[in-house]
Design a protein around this nucleic acid. Sequence first.
DNA 1: CAACTGAATGAACAACCATTCATTTTTAGT
DNA 2: ACTAAAAATGAATGGTTGTTCATTCAGTTG
Lengths: 212, 212
Amino acid sequence: MEAVKAEPNITPRSLSKQARRKQLIEATIKCIADKGLSGTTMADVTQQAGLSLGIVNLHFQTKEKLLIETLSYISNEYTTGLNEIFNDEKLTTEQKILAHINFDFSRKITDRNKLAVWFAFWGETKSRPTYMSICASYISEIATNLTQLFAILKQQGGYSAVDPDLVCTCYTALSDGLWLDLLMTPKGLKPAQAQTVAMHYLTTQFPDHFKN
Amino acid sequence: MEAVKAEPNITPRSLSKQARRKQLIEATIKCIADKGLSGTTMADVTQQAGLSLGIVNLHFQTKEKLLIETLSYISNEYTTGLNEIFNDEKLTTEQKILAHINFDFSRKITDRNKLAVWFAFWGETKSRPTYMSICASYISEIATNLTQLFAILKQQGGYSAVDPDLVCTCYTALSDGLWLDLLMTPKGLKPAQAQTVAMHYLTTQFPDHFKN
DNA sequence: CAACTGAATGAACAACCATTCATTTTTAGT
DNA sequence: ACTAAAAATGAATGGTTGTTCATTCAGTTG
């Protein structure tokens, strides 16, 4: 674990306040991936960021707030990416769903450091209402959008037997489970294969649109 | 959180050594569910068990060993249940698969305290090789058995297009994801509904055997 | 009933770690 | 160049927690 600065030739304090916060959050992600949520100390995070011990208090007040901001950071990154797809007027419904899957198994999302952070927080949600409510809000937002896409495709494609809510629940659970697979058995399952598994399920529901 | 003894009328020390270990492990499960892995202290666990602080050291030497035994305990409970099904000579392949799903979404397995423990450990696997290897062993054992069941059903049922490995990966990921759903949105998804979702997937693969 | 065994207890200890804040360093304004 | 404000530092602090072990106590044996 080496200290890494965001930009080699720029002194640390020339970065703006917001950039410093981002630097600390990304150091936190790396630390959680390397040492776990319980094993991550303030000394670890600040050393990973190449800064001094007191810096977290200056920007986040407490460790707990830093952790909450870290969860919000990866949640926002995910929902923002999906909303861009959902709101893209140039894409057809079919293309949006394909783009959604593509995004779910892209490098950015299946990065094992970030997957470790997701599961670290998920593992604590039952005992931490704050984590729980952050997760609950992005979950329902994404489900609403995705269900709507499936409903449109059902109508347009004449898939009378398809239940959009069921397909949304099933697809979401499937991708969560595949992420767990990518985290736990990285030697066994690669992101591209995981995407194939997800496509395999969608093919069963919309065979005319998604051929294997 | 109240101290609860295993048997009201039996004094603590009349329990055998093994029963005492089980008592402590179950107290640990409750604590992890209530306070998270990082928030669980030795004082919490022993108080939950209604025993004194030093007892864990007597039976498990260290906290880390108690946690490892706790992960092994729930892993064994799960794999033992599945192996009983897999080895039951009286069941047909189709019945074994049905029993497998039934078990995955039974009360015993979808108990939110235990789900919280599963995800708590999964969230730390990347940084803890010991947790990782415990998980790796049960994962591969179950996958081997389940893939075999699907392969037999493919042959018997004439499902020439089915890929048993793919279906096993997909089903396993799906049930892991549904467990996450049960943990995170208990108000939204009930175990019986989760089971319906899992059945829905199997129906797409083996329509003659598993009708909706 | 007395001596013995080992399970259980919990006060005390030592290590760890989040947080504080007096001091130093950098930047921006004039 | 000088000054004031802002940012960053890191030694010191205090609270928490895993672990230890001398002592207590229940159950058993002869």
